Simulated scan of single mutants.
Amino acid sequence: MKSFISGLPKVELHLHLEGTLEPELMFILAERNNVTLPYSSIESLKAAYQFHDLQAFLDLYYQGALVLQTEQDFYDLTYAYLERCKEQHIIHTEVFFDPQIHTQTGTPFDVVAEGITRALKDGEANLGISSGLIMCFQRDLSEEDAIETLKQSIAYKDDIVAVGLDSSELGNPPEKFERVFAMARNAGLKTVAHAGEEGSADYIWGAIEALHVDRIDHGVRCTDEPKLVQYLIEHQIPLTVCPLSNVQLNVFGEMTQHNIVELLKQGVLVTINSDDPAYFGGYLNDNYLTVAEAFGLTKQEVARFSENAIMASFLSVERKQRLQQKLEHYLDIQFRPII
């Protein structure tokens, strides 16, 4: 199974670039930018990666992001992730970035966007990995701040395919951002939103009805309301689920309690993703393998997650068909009878 997953052509749809900041790179960038970290070593930093909830993780996440200050920093961060993609046979990725984290501490929007977009273009040219860029608004900040961020992004309308909504759910329902999401849709952008991770099923309904999202990030609390699950199935609204992250943040006590396989078998368009892999102990292949082992999945069942991710992506129909052909070619070889 490990070998099968390693070679399986995959698509990742829920990945925060700032969440790929490995401890080693964090220390390199801290030294580069004269930032003092509150950790004496890489080992002491890794020891802090024990989170009891989402906010505990976010506190460390925002602290780590302070080392990202120049265009080259954002380039190095992004390209390092794309090299991981190459190793893990991820053929397309749609990545989040959080500009407000950086603009709030004085780093201009253009510095962030230029570094990331340059790396994504080089990743396609040099590594053959296609990508889409999703600009997330922080839901703990005001909608006015989100609107200003959207305005700053206009110069990058050819690079940004969608807007998203992340950070702490509780007390920050989707309805808070109804106007800015309408503005983004009117500008031709796709829309996604984190919902139903720490928030209730009502947050998922809010993302669907108030924000009119094209897909839901996380969404695992949907099973609290059977009518919502049925709605997701009927309308084929994708869920970008992050299994290791969910266990690490105590959304589920252990992987065998996760509902991702239940949702797959019910017909929900559910996908596997790695969220913030530097912090949660695993990139995409690790998430696939952990789910497969926890539930004793067959190779055909595992492959359905990859097929779902292709379908749920923001690629053109033609490009989706080409990726589907790659997947089918791989599966044909894997399941070809031995004579």
Rank of each mutant, 00 (worst) to 15 (best):
E22T: 13
E31F: 07
G219N: 11
H16F: 01
L232W: 04
G64L: 07
E209I: 00
L170T: 10
P337G: 02
T271C: 13
A48T: 04
D217G: 14
R139V: 00
Q266E: 14
P337A: 03
G19D: 09
D159W: 00
P238H: 10
M1L: 13
K299G: 06
S130E: 07
Q321A: 15
E197H: 09
S142K: 03
K121C: 02
S313Y: 00
P9A: 01
E198M: 02
D217Y: 00
P99T: 07
V67C: 04
E114H: 11
A30K: 03
S153K: 09
V291I: 09
E234W: 03
N186H: 10
A113N: 07
V291P: 07
L239G: 02
R139T: 00
V220R: 06
G128N: 05
L232F: 01
E144C: 04
D214T: 11
A146E: 11
Q50L: 14
Q63V: 00
L13A: 05
A294V: 10
A312I: 09
I134Y: 08
F96T: 08
A65R: 05
I260G: 07
G64M: 06
F96L: 05
I208H: 11
E301A: 03
P174A: 04
D122L: 01
S200L: 09
G123V: 01
W205F: 15
Y231P: 12
G188F: 10
G196S: 02
Y79W: 08
F181Q: 11
H92R: 03
F305E: 01
C222P: 12
S40E: 15
Y39T: 07
D214H: 15
Q138C: 06
L244D: 00
T191A: 15
H235L: 02
Q55H: 03
I42K: 14
R185V: 12
F109H: 14
F280T: 12
F137K: 04
V251M: 02
L37P: 09
L244W: 00
V247E: 13
V317S: 04
V163H: 15
D158Q: 14
C222E: 04
P243H: 09
V261P: 08
E144K: 08
Q334E: 15
F51D: 12
H212S: 12
Y39C: 08
Q257H: 15
G132E: 11
G106P: 00
Y288C: 11
K2H: 10
V180N: 13
L58T: 10
G128R: 06
F181A: 12
M1H: 14
I339A: 09
L269A: 14
S41A: 05
E143G: 06
N34D: 15
G281L: 03
L15W: 13
A195G: 12
E198H: 04
T223Y: 10
D140F: 00
E175T: 11
V180R: 08
T223A: 08
E301K: 02
L244V: 00
R304P: 02
A309E: 03
V213N: 05
K10L: 09
M311V: 07
E31Q: 15
V268R: 05
D76W: 08
W205A: 10
K176A: 05
E12W: 05
N246E: 10
A303Q: 09
H258V: 10
A187T: 03
D140K: 01
A155P: 06
E318H: 06
F57D: 11
E198T: 13
T107W: 02
N287L: 12
I260A: 03
Y49I: 06
R185I: 10
E43R: 13
L170A: 07
H235T: 07
A207I: 04
L170V: 13
T298Q: 13
Q72W: 01
